[in-house]
Every structure is written in C-alpha cells, then in structure tokens.
Nucleic acid binder design. Structure first.
Lengths: 212, 212
DNA sequence: AGTATTGGACTGGCCGGCCAGTCCAAAGCG
DNA sequence: CGCTTTGGACTGGCCGGCCAGTCCAATACT
C-alpha cells in the first residue's frame, strides 16, 4: 500500500512541531475552524482560543494559509491512522468485512465533528494548489486502505466486482455517509441506512454468500 | 408526494422576481459564488458580474444574506425540477429503474458546477436558521422524489428493503456521488463507479431479478 | 565568577485594505 | 409622477499582516 506524502511544509520555512505553543495553536485552530469554518473564524479567534497573542501565530506560521496547510497535514495523518487502525487483521470472512465496515463507521462518527472543516479544506483546494495536492494524495491513500480491507477480508472469494472497483464504490458510498453524518442530526437514523448498505452491498458483492 | 415549502422571503419585504435586473443579479450571484464561494466573493464582485451598480443590490435585496436566501430558493426549485423531470413515467421494470437512475445522474452532472455553492449553503445553514429550514425541507423533498421513483419503477415487485429505506440509501449514495463529481476531475471514472453501483444495488434490491 | 552576546519565544499595537451597509442627488423612463 | 438605476461619498468595523521591542535562558568570553 502506498503511503501518501503527508510531509509538512516541504519547500517552506519549517515549523517546529515539537514546540508546545505550535501544538496549542494547531489544536485551537482545529476547534475554532471546525466550529466556525476557515473563512468564518479569524486569526484573532484562533489566537484567543489558544490563549496566545495573535502575533505568535505569525511568528510560527507564515500566514493563515500556511497554518491551514499544517493543520491539514495533521488532520490527514489522524484520519488515516484512525481508519487504518480499524481495519484489523483476522480470519478473512464476510463477517470480518462487516466488522471492518462497522469499525470504519465508528471512526467516521468519532471524527464527524471535523467534517465541516474537511469540506472547507476541499473548498479551499479549488484555488490552493498546495492543499489540493495533499488532499488528492490523501484521497488515494484512503482508497488504497479500503481496497486493502476488502482484499484482506474477502480476497479469497469470488467477487462480483474487481477489488479496485469495489473499493471505489465503497469509498464513494462512505463519502455519502460522511455528508449525511454532517447534515443529519439523527445519528441513529443514518446508522440504520448504513446497516442496510452493509447488507445489500455484501449480498451483491459476494453472490455465494461467502464462507459462512 | 409532499411539496416542500420553497416560497420566497416569507416574512420579509418581498423581492420582485419578475424584475429583469433582479434575475440578472441572481444569475450573477450564482456564477460568482459558485466560482469563489459565498465568503470569497463580495457584493462588489456580484454587482460587476451583473453589470450593475452595487447600490442596486441593496435596492432590491436587504442584505447579502437575503440575496443568498433568494438564490437558495431559486436553486432548490431548479434542482428539484431537474430531478423530477428525469423521473419519468413508463412501464415499471428494473430497466426503468436503471434508466431513472441514469437520468438522475445526468441531472447531477448537469448541475455539478454548482455543487460548491451547495456546500457553502449547507455550511452557512449551521448558523443561519432561515437557510437551515429551507435546506432541510429541500432534503425531504428530494428523498420523497427518490422514493417515488422507486415506487413507480419497482413498486410492484418484492424488494429486499422497504421503499423508504431503499430511498434513504439511494439518497445517501447519490450524495456521495455528488461529492465525487465535485472532487474528481475524471468524470468517466466516476461514471464507471456509478454503473457498478446501479448493477450491484439493483441486483441486491430485486432478488428475483425483476420481471425481465 | 561576572559580564556580554545571542537568539528564540512572545507581545501589544498599529496599518492599509477590504467589506457590508447607508445615504443621497441626479438621471432615465414608462 | 413614481419606479428604477446610477455613481459616488462615507462609515464603522474587521482582518491579515507587520513591526518594534520585551523577556529570558543558554552560551561565550574575560
């Protein structure tokens, strides 16, 4: 599986990620921008949330945009780690696939509060090449993770679709659920739809019914 | 099928939608905000795109927010009309369902350029109650449209899922494809995933294979 | 030891610029 | 005449960015 390039500030003045203030600023920015959006919250808001002078932001980060880029790198790492850790090893089976999907669901629910931030990120990526490239790489990494999960749990059986195409479909569907997790306040209802998806999808993908 | 309340400016000073300048302003706002986002584009930008004095915006619309609300109403009407017109009558069958899905796909592709605007709208709805209510109503209308399409094309057969739950699932998956239509530049690739979805979904939903 | 120097971390305050919104006088126009 | 439109001046406020300067611990020098 490829490891996407999520390195930090390549070509820019480095940011000292060990510095405690830097971490506080990053955490504060995540909170504030998650709540009010990248455009809706000013650097002043971020600074006061971090309990720090606004000037310090510019001391550590070249600009608001660079702060966003650093934060994006950290966010991608976190989400990728969360998803990866949920795709566990185990005896391949349809049950394992169901379980893996549930785990990914849990990861999505756990990070659902940050979804608005993710969408701002994609929005920004339309005009910001640095953001764009990283997000595309991250997207590929996620898809590879999904393909990996399918291969591990169902790779031994005959599937109605090649693994890559199945992964692409799952990826797209998961995007849809991300959206609904953001838009709908009723988590239980969305969860029920997700269960329907699991059932229908696996029934269609593994025609034989697997090795149950 | 319920008709969502998409009336305009309830409780506010009315906006003369017949006025030609108003329409030009609305169209310009759609173009500009689609391109640069609601926050990224100023009223000055909208005015110059419309070839109109900035004061005229304030003459016809109370504020930037009210312009957004009017635009949202128009956008919801348009999308709903586009989708509704694609769910055609005809002899119910699996083939008809496939065709209806294709039609919805076409509507989504046709309006894909406006998806960023739609996301800004949802983003704004987090803090703007007027926007929020209309979007929720619109969401319900869309889901009802989907349920209607399923009922019309497949209602006569035994389905693996109740119509409402199937509609909810389709709705969610379509959201996912909307996202991918926005994020991916490669339309053909996304289209292939959509075809896979159609096949797998209908195979699982209509176990008997329908009345083919 | 005592002093000088360095350099990173941090701050408060300021600036130019943009923006939404207001107001108005004047002009077009049916 | 009333409705529409223009263009410009103006305001109050916020924002990103910049800068001069403080603090302090570590280091170097005598």
């Amino acid at each position: 599986m490829q490891q996407a390039n999520l390195r930090t500030s390549v070509g820019y003045k480095p940011v000292n990620l060990e510095n405690e203030s830097v971490q506080r600023i990053l955490r504060a920015a995540m909170r504030v921008w998650t709540r009010d959006g990248y455009y809706g919250a000013s650097l002043k808001d971020v600074a006061s949330e971090a309990g720090v002078a606004k000037s310090l932001l510019h001391y550590h980060f070249q600009s608001k945009e660079h702060l966003l880029i650093e934060l994006q790198a950290q966010w991608c790492r976190m989400v990728a780690r969360a998803v990866r850790s949920r795709i566990e090893e185990g005896p391949p089976s349809v049950a394992a696939a169901l379980d893996a999907l549930d785990q990914v669901w849990n990861a999505m629910v756990a990070t659902r509060a940050q979804l608005p931030f993710a969408f701002d990120l994609w929005r920004e990526s339309e005009t910001n090449l640095a953001i764009r490239e990283r997000l595309v790489a991250f997207d590929h990494e996620l898809r590879a993770l999904i393909a990996d999960g399918i291969r591990r749990t169902l790779g031994h059986t005959k599937l109605a679709l090649p693994v890559e195409r199945a992964a692409a479909l799952v990826h797209t569907v998961l995007d849809g659920f991300s959206l609904r997790l953001w838009l709908d306040e009723d988590l239980a209802k969305t969860r029920r739809i997700f269960d329907d998806f699991k059932t229908l999808f696996l029934a269609a993908l593994v025609p034989s019914g697997g090795d149950r």
